[in-house]
Design a protein around this nucleic acid. Structure first.
Lengths: 149, 149
DNA sequence: TTTGAAATTGAAATCCAATTTCATTTTAAG
DNA sequence: CTTAAAATGAAATTGGATTTCAATTTCAAA
């Protein structure tokens, strides 16, 4: 699995290697991201029902502190986590119909943001951007039900 | 004060006109926005210490539902409210040093967002964008203390 | 005006995710 | 091995958001 990642994380953080941490890391890095703690915990439970919720919580927090996980809070208020990878620098399109989350990246957007910041004499360290709306699927569904109803 | 606004809100919402609602609305629309419930409540208290926290909470919620207030959640997780006005369509620059919040609007940005959405066959209903960083003041302060230290 | 149903208020209770506590267990350095 | 420090996990706590409910107030109709 993610053995090397696990080892380097433990080493770099001067942490102790535990079965729990390794299992949680494996589950997390093989998940599709944008999951909340309850969802991650549920997946961990399937692998090892002995692992406590608190441990999952603390492990995700550790991973976040060490840059291996990213915490996201969209408008619904839920705290979600995503595994950090090379392509972690992205924003989100979120469907209000089905909850689908699509990631995107746009260089022009970043350039514009820099320009805005400069105009206000700000130095940006990071940003958050989400576009909320309806995906193609949900829009066509809506049309159909409108036709029927 | 905001007597007309109050009356039209009550009328349009088929609500009852109460002293509490009028006072809360006045305080809220004369505040500078981006305040959390505790802050708004504190201000209301100064005008009328008899008004309960729950009533402030419910009134802000009502105002939000009726489009007179906007709820915002930035990365710090706090729920803030701002009075809705003609220029309510804006995004935010947020200083991580002093907490200063600057509003801005950018048409080019919106156009880009539309383009991105179209590419993913999304229909945007609204968005959220915040740029986090250091304002000019905080950056110059940092430089000075670095010089000293 | 008076009346009374419905709406509103506010203190207290509840909810619920996030976080902490603490007794026990595990890790790993010596 | 031994042992101090770290980690675990169940339970308790926290804190903001929300609901409950008895008492009060509003306002339309009599």
């Amino acid at each position: 699995m993610e053995t090397d990642l696990f080892k380097s994380w433990i080493a770099r953080g001067r942490l102790k290697a535990t079965r729990q941490r390794e299992e949680i890391l494996n589950v997390f890095f093989n998940s599709h991201g944008h999951q909340n703690l309850a969802q991650i915990y549920a997946q961990v439970m399937k692998v090892d029902p002995k692992i406590g919720y608190t441990t999952v919580y603390r492990t995700l927090k550790l991973l976040t502190r060490h840059g291996l996980a990213l915490q996201r809070k969209f408008a619904d208020g839920e705290t979600r986590y995503e595994p950090v990878s090379d392509k972690s620098h992205h924003d989100h399109l979120i469907c209000l119909g089905c909850g689908k989350i699509i990631e995107f990246e746009d260089k022009d957007m970043e350039a514009l943001q820099e320009g805005i910041a400069e105009r206000h004499r700000f130095k940006i360290s990071h940003h958050r951007m989400e576009l909320y709306g309806q995906c193609a699927d949900c829009r066509s569904k809506k049309k159909n039900s409108a036709r029927k109803g």
